[in-house]
Design a protein around this nucleic acid. Structure first.
Lengths: 210, 210
DNA sequence: CAGATTCGGTACCGATCGGTACTGAAAGAG
DNA sequence: CTCTTTCAGTACCGATCGGTACCGAATCTG
């Protein structure tokens, strides 16, 4: 109904839904779910409240759709990374992509999937849970990809695919936090390079102290 | 005035300031600055609004004081880590401390210094900046500590102390994000161990692909 | 054209936001 | 005791929150 076949009858919509969603996404990205008011959102979208509710449902729906757009836009490096031919290339593409996406010159600093809502009061708890699920789904896919690499002999047979995925996600999310704090792209790229230089890290028992 | 010499005249305060601050800290920790309403805070503190304003100033002051208490309480592992005798022990204490603090059984999941406010609207921008400064101050201290290790020969002469500090902070903050998403202590400890197993990572040119 | 449908805009809903004036009681000094 | 100070509580402030009823205008079908 909202985005199905375009209704043949009635006055057509006077604004570009995709353009409006793009602008809403950026507000959520910059200010988080709770920090983005309807006034902030509709002002950035260039439409009024009524049109927003008619086109997107409510604030929570708008947030979900913004996250979808974010996934297919600024965060599409994640899906691309999963399709890289080797585990090392997957890791490299993921961290490089995270650095680029969280420090884009024309985009808000940080990652919508992290700073959109980490902790929230009751009215924002749904948005927080949506983001948690969003992150965990990616970790799961990443773990599957690394397990495939183990099965193919691309990673050592005793490698813990899930742990490698969790480790990489931890660094990627850490990069997002640094970026939100204003750390520059070149510094974060050095952090990513440093992580990748010792990747895959050993999964076995701890190495003795140097 | 607020916490100086106890005024000899007038009715004495009917609640424990430290206890009330501890409870406020936990609310900010769980719900973030914007997600914690005055009603949430005062209800948890067991006092009414008037008493809170008289004792702590306003919501922003209460947040700052909660962060101070957090620094000296749940986050005191940071200062302790800086006093470890070797750079490796500093890194180990920091990551192990982060894992423990963000997954404490009786405490909210995650780190107040991260999820307290990463992105915010205008009314919460001060709190966000306070936390950014808080994190950056620690990175600075950590960098100083590693530079000292370089000077002492505890780290290689060509090691980039600032970058090592940034890298470690990135992992620590990433751990906090995972913890906020409900990831368990043992998994995060494995992530920390994995990071420490290849620490200090090489600072030089990238190693060739395996 | 007539009729149906949706547009964008205003004005408003009850609830909650952070913050404060006011009040009567409690506890100090003298 | 009186006087002063601060307590804790209620009730309220204007502003803003997310969300909606209503409107005239615009644009479709037939």
């Amino acid at each position: 109904m909202e985005t199905g076949q375009k209704a043949a009858i009635g006055r057509p919509r006077g604004f570009d839904t995709e353009e409006a969603l793009e602008r809403a996404m950026r507000v959520f990205w910059e200010q988080g779910y709770e920090g983005a008011s309807l006034t902030d959102l509709t002002r950035a979208m260039g439409i009024n409240r009524t049109s927003m509710y008619a086109a997107f449902g409510n604030k929570e729906d708008l947030f979900r759709k913004s996250l979808e757009r974010y996934t297919e836009g600024p965060a599409s490096y994640g899906a691309r990374a999963l399709r890289e031919p080797t585990a090392r290339q997957v890791a490299t593409a993921l961290l490089n992509g995270a650095v680029r996406a969280t420090t884009g010159i024309g985009s808000p600093a940080g990652c919508l999937g992290v700073q959109g809502s980490l902790a929230a009061g009751e009215p924002g708890s749904n948005a927080r849970d949506v983001l948690t699920t969003w992150r965990e789904e990616f970790v799961s896919l990443l773990g599957d990809r690394f397990q495939q690499a183990v099965d193919e002999g691309d990673l050592p047979a005793d490698a813990d695919a899930g742990l490698l995925a969790r480790h990489l996600m931890t660094v990627a999310n850490g990069i997002a936090v640094q970026a939100a704090g204003g750390i520059t792209r070149d510094v974060l790229q050095q952090v990513a390079d440093m992580t990748l230089r010792s990747w895959p890290p050993a999964t076995g028992p701890a190495q003795p102290d140097a």
